[in-house]
Design a protein around this nucleic acid. Sequence first.
RNA 1: UCCGCAGUAGCUCAAUGGUAGAGCAUCCGGCUGUUAACCGGAGGGUUGUAGGUUCGAGUCCUACCUGCGGAGCCA
Length: 445
Amino acid sequence: MKGSLLSFKPQVYIKDLSRHVGEEVVIKGWLYNSRSSGKILFPQLRDGTGIVQCVVLKSAVSPEVWEALDHLGQESSLVVRGKVREDARAPGGYEIEVTDAEVVQAATGYPITPKEHGVEFLLDHRHLWIRSRRQHAILKVRHTVVRAVRDFLDQEGFILCDAPILTPAACEGTTTLFEVDYFEDEKAYLTQSGQLYNEATAAAFGRVYCFGPTFRAEKSKTRRHLTEFWMVEPEMAYATIDDVMELSERFLTAIVARVLDERREELKLLERDTAKLERIAPPFPRLHYDEAVRILQEGHERGALEDRFEWGGDFGAPDETYLSQQFEKPVMVHRFPAAVKAFYMARDPERPELALGVDVLAPEGYGEIIGGGERAASLEFLEEQIREHNLPREAFEWYLDLRRYGSVPHAGFGMGIERCVAWLCGIEHVRETIPFPRMLYRLRP
RNA sequence: UCCGCAGUAGCUCAAUGGUAGAGCAUCCGGCUGUUAACCGGAGGGUUGUAGGUUCGAGUCCUACCUGCGGAGCCA
């Protein structure tokens, strides 16, 4: 009878099938792939929680059901009823002996076939690509990373206090921002960081974090860049650069442990070498910038790096890769030349030419996943920095208030979710770590 | 923005300057245990665009468009 299976309750999910062996269940899903052999069909059904092979014998179902399933196209939506059986021949170990089925919508010509496809084609069909096993695994890891981030910070007493997405000025004055034409007499921009607002909320709540999308209008075109990405930024009042390094270590360790605990299956599907992740535990190596420069220069002398790195610059991608490859754990590089860092960074009292900033480089060449440090607490110093960087003073008046009314040493960092997920999954490109990547030249779907 | 590479069937790719082809997908047929199933058949093309060289261009030349990889910048 039409509609009877579609509205059937309770719906059983494929991930729970092992608890229903011997029972008759109803699964609602989509046709992942199908093989036929005359009077027997092997449709593979996915429902978002997993994939299960069904067995349809022509002799066991009505002629209507057989007819409906016999030539059903990939990704057709359907509901099946059948008995759960353990069978070693089935991928996944369980299968459904189908007794009844109902096609919700018969699809034809699904573009993503079980064969290879190019990147451009897959990205053009991202809305469908996310149905495939590999993308599913990556996005589940992302989900777990986000949960781990929130749980860790919540347990550490951080208050979620999100920063605005529409902002009146650049945080750091250097990067290119997305302009929004809406507010009268004033340009607005999409945020590049919640940093400055975090400093306000940290002074209100002590320990805070914001977690949301971030936008960079740079013409970056590499495997580590998105124009829209997600960043989590904790900030602590009465804290120093050392507190930031200590928190970063425990933070990353907690995330890795959670993913290893909950996403073994997904990491296995992605062929991730989990032994490399098992090693992630405090303490992480801490490298003074001077020492990092020495290592890079040695690397150049040994022929491992093309260009000789000179003291004073910021690391390029090959430099970060080389540094991270010298260690098995994330490496924390601290105390950069102030000239290459943001205006709000505090200075090293012993060497004022250095900023109390720290970058955490992920292992295996995944680059910078965390950037942070101690913020300048002095009103006079910040006023001078704003002048030197040619920033619009009016836009920063509220920020300067934070130094007028109870200024304290404070520090924090930001972590890019996509780079973190790419590292944990061991995948080439960050574009696969977000459901709908936004990149230079890619706005659709 | 700069450097490098690539655009041929729905997809992935072939084709010495000389008749545009294969696998998958689609449609039809066969097969009661398939594992990216297999076997047989059919349909499917303005070779990214515009110009040029040539008896003849998918192939050589020029410009443009689109995408990919990387750099700079950054998380």
